[in-house]
Write a protein that binds this DNA or RNA. Structure first.
Lengths: 213, 213
DNA sequence: TAGATTGTTAATCGATTAACAATC
DNA sequence: TAGATTGTTAATCGATTAACAATC
């Protein structure tokens, strides 16, 4: 099968939300039209996206909700537990440690690390916070491939280099810094200012269309 | 001028990061090639994007760094202060209150609100946290148009309806819930599971290309 | 059976990239 | 002046949407 387009991939978690909600109400089958209505999308787009996950529906009936959930989770890799480390136990890092949504998607933050000793575990959080020195041992012990980066921008590249050396292969970069990695490592930027820019411009465009009336 | 494509708009904040970094080193002019190198993009794409902001460069010389920063910030609306409220003072909400990046982009979180009285201001944070009852007064007093939504998914729609009634015109939705708003209100979803899905699949694709060797 | 919904093939739309003339 | 870089116009690429046959 051909590789899924990035926009399609980004929609899959939204489908999952809708499906899980339908499932909790006891609905067994769902049509592309049903999902489209919930998400303000076109049914044809949902059908196209579903095809990438390998699921097949039944004409007239629709898709089996349980099977569809399984297919999407399998496709993304959310049926297997992924252990991860988090670097930078500031306020954003701490918020992510406590985020319940990760457990639902089988992302398990095994431990967090911080240069600042004051941020080390006080037992209030369920995720332990260790000094940076313990990072290599934990990564090796749990065979961790994923790192969440919530350090200040100035420290991002240095920490990235460490992570790469330890064999980390996927970095979720929440810092605004642009980090460089070798080709066998993937990076996903999660930049808040991107979303803010879109919101600001859309708000502005709203004013303009109103003024034109 | 025609409306900017969404992908171009999302790149503007990244350009800003690069430009501010160059400016701090005292660089006066910058070429599209310079920016492209920093961000792993093609120069032609930067030139196209810049055109949308209205800036003009000088052949052979490049763009004036200061003028370009101003043009981008003007275009996004980041030269004017935008007052905002934040609803839901949980760990994510608190992290956003403390996020320094917002001040740089002139987003000013005037106050946060929470149903839970225990989360009300203890003076440790610079952003006050009030009970929901005070929301209408604060929104009116500061003529607030932007709301940041960090409540649990189950409460998202109810809070959204309140916000819309109070005249809020832009909602930055950090909850995983799909919220419905009238056409004169813009919503920007900021869904972490989207980024996680992309990261997981990219990591998986990495394995596959390696195995093919 | 008749009608609704899927999945496929083709058409459209929009963003990226290429080519190149203009110019400092 | 010569060379580098911009901005514009055209070509390519990829995603969305439309049309429709297949089918439960």
């Amino acid at each position: 099968m051909s590789r899924i387009p990035l926009p399609s991939l980004k929609r899959l978690p939204r489908y999952l939300n809708v499906l899980e909600s339908f499932q909790s109400y006891g609905t067994d089958t769902i049509s592309a039209t049903d999902i489209a209505e919930e998400l303000d999308l076109k049914p044809i787009q949902i059908r196209k996206d579903m095809a990438f996950t390998g699921i097949v529906g039944k004409p007239k009936v629709g898709y089996d909700v349980g099977a569809l959930i399984k297919a999407i989770r399998d496709f993304i890799g959310w049926n297997d537990i992924s252990p991860a480390v988090l670097i930078g136990a500031g306020s954003l890092g701490t918020a992510l440690m406590r985020y319940e949504g990760f457990a639902k998607r089988n992302l398990n933050i095994v431990a967090a690390f911080d240069k600042d000793q004051n941020r080390n575990s006080d037992g209030r959080s369920s995720t332990p916070v260790y000094p940076m020195e313990r990072l290599p041992a934990i990564v090796a012990e749990h065979e961790i491939e994923i790192a969440i980066l919530t350090v200040p921008p100035a420290a991002a590249q240095e920490v990235t280099d460490q992570l790469v050396k330890l064999g980390i292969r996927a970095i979720w970069n929440f810092s605004s810094a642009e980090i460089q990695v070798p080709p066998h490592v993937v990076v996903r930027r999660e930049d808040l200012s991107e979303g803010l820019a879109v919101l600001c411009v859309q708000l502005h465009e709203l004013d303009e269309t109103r003024e034109k009336k």
